[in-house]
Amino acid sequence: MSREIKFILNGNPICIAIEEHWTLLYLLREKLGLTGTKEGCGRGECGACTVLVDGLAINSCLYFAVETDGKNILTIEGLAAEDGSLHPLQKSFIENGGIQCGFCTPGMILSAKALLDENPRPTETDIKQALAGNLCRCTGYVQIIESIEAVVDKRIEDINVVVRETGDSD
């Protein structure tokens, strides 16, 4: 059965007819050509298909496409700025060895984004917990965790710079 849905995809409004049994992953990869979102298991056990729905990390392989109606979806393709400059998390994964085979990377980065949006200063345990649903076989997770910590540290540093420059203190 087909149905029309409207949602925001990576900042752009979109209106598309879908079949009701489609998953969001299927819609993204097969119908919209956004293959950056990966399918690693198809049953919510690996996190490769992670995208953000209204800011929350979800497994798109288990998410009903119809439920995206009216929502805001972010995939890895929408993370960089419009001018192509990379998101700090993308940069950090690149510079800190957070990427090897890269298959888990889009999901990892989006899980990390959801975490930092909710909790700008996560502990190592917070980070590990947020990534627990994103499996990786290459890295042992160490450099992935370090990549996220580097973004957090950089932000704190930037805030401190601002505080110093404006002379604020508390």
Binding site: T35, L86, I94
Partner: peptide, 21 residues
């Protein structure tokens, strides 16, 4: 030197193509 992987940007942006794609 600790140099970033040459394919890392493509992998971080979802552009890298796997057999799935």
């Amino acid at each position: 030197k600790r140099i970033s992987k040459v394919d890392a940007v493509d992998k971080a942006t979802g552009r890298a193509l796997y057999i799935q794609d």
